[in-house]
Design a protein around this nucleic acid. Structure first.
Lengths: 168, 168
DNA sequence: ATCCAATAGTAGGACATCCAAGTATTTTTG
DNA sequence: CAAAAATACTTGGATGTCCTACTATTGGAT
């Protein structure tokens, strides 16, 4: 039987420690990857009845939070930390679904502004309810633990520029 | 100017708190997504000269940790928490690159066993050195913070079955 | 004023991921 | 023992992501 007789994640940490001495970084990085997989999988499953993925949900959510109701695609990509081509793809799909409108910015005709349609707003609200009911799959953690983990992750995000872009 | 005048991530948390009361879960989930994006982006950049992605690196690493040196594809998918079709795709690419061998299991001809080639082992070691030098992009966190975050994330993974599969 | 650089978005291609469906093999069951 | 169920993997299709151009528009520099 070629089955594994150990936990490879823990074991990997040990091997790293023996050979390199960077067990904690490796363990942590691997954990982030796995938790992201778990969460994203849950989110997409919950959102599937609403015909959106978590990526597209994030676009809708971002639009709903903007004061003017409209955002240029570049801002969306900046906020969600995704490539400009990904934003084009996401907004295209959302537009085809009738969840967002696309219009050229009169002040800068290079720009394309996306905004929620009434239908998109309804989908967003329903999707948000679904995610809230799921509690984002985080019942295993207390609110205090969630906040604690959030603060730790925030340090990494800060160290990687995912933060101070509020000026633009 | 359609620019944002607030931090949408923090602001999102506030709105959630006002309307729903689940700010911590939403904030945490969003943070996990962003940190994963940041880390994965760094990893792939560092691994690019070695002609592998982080996904393929994880396959190589897993194989190197197995006692027999061989793992059926199903075990790989189970450990890395990816779909069987993803494993097929990854191992196919690694095989084309000459980094892994594929062979049918004599005991159970449904199974396909993957194992590292000498070349694959070299690539794995070089890639590991590169990731170690990067310190997994986690210089912003102390070792204690990394361990602390790891323990919190572990709770989520445990609650989602990414753990007790050691029996198989 | 006019060329040139920077910016915004899009098109095409590669990779990874999932799902649904299909094949092959093994195990279970009646 | 034969049919049904379970398991292991692959194929084809859809999404999302990134990268490398490429177009259009704007802003700066001489």
């Amino acid at each position: 039987m070629p089955g594994l007789d150990f936990d490879p994640i823990e074991r990997a940490g040990e091997l790293w420690a023996e050979h390199i001495g960077e067990a904690s970084a490796m363990r942590f990085a691997t954990s982030v990857m796995r938790v992201q997989q778990v969460l994203l999988s849950q989110f997409d499953a919950v959102l599937k009845p609403h015909d959106i993925t978590f990526s597209r949900y994030e676009v809708l959510r971002l639009l709903s939070f903007s004061t003017s109701g409209k955002l240029p695609l570049s801002k969306i990509g900046e906020r969600l930390m995704v490539h400009p081509t990904s934003v084009t793809s996401l907004v295209d799909r959302l537009a085809k679904q009738g969840f967002v409108n696309r219009e050229h910015d009169a002040d800068d005709r290079r720009r394309v502004l996306a905004s929620l349609t009434p239908t998109g707003k309804k989908v967003l609200d329903a999707a948000t309810d679904a995610l809230t009911e799921l509690n984002f799959g985080l019942d295993a953690l207390t609110v205090e633990q969630q906040d604690e983990a959030y603060e730790l992750l925030k340090i990494i995000r800060k160290a990687n520029e995912d933060w101070g872009t509020t000026e633009a």
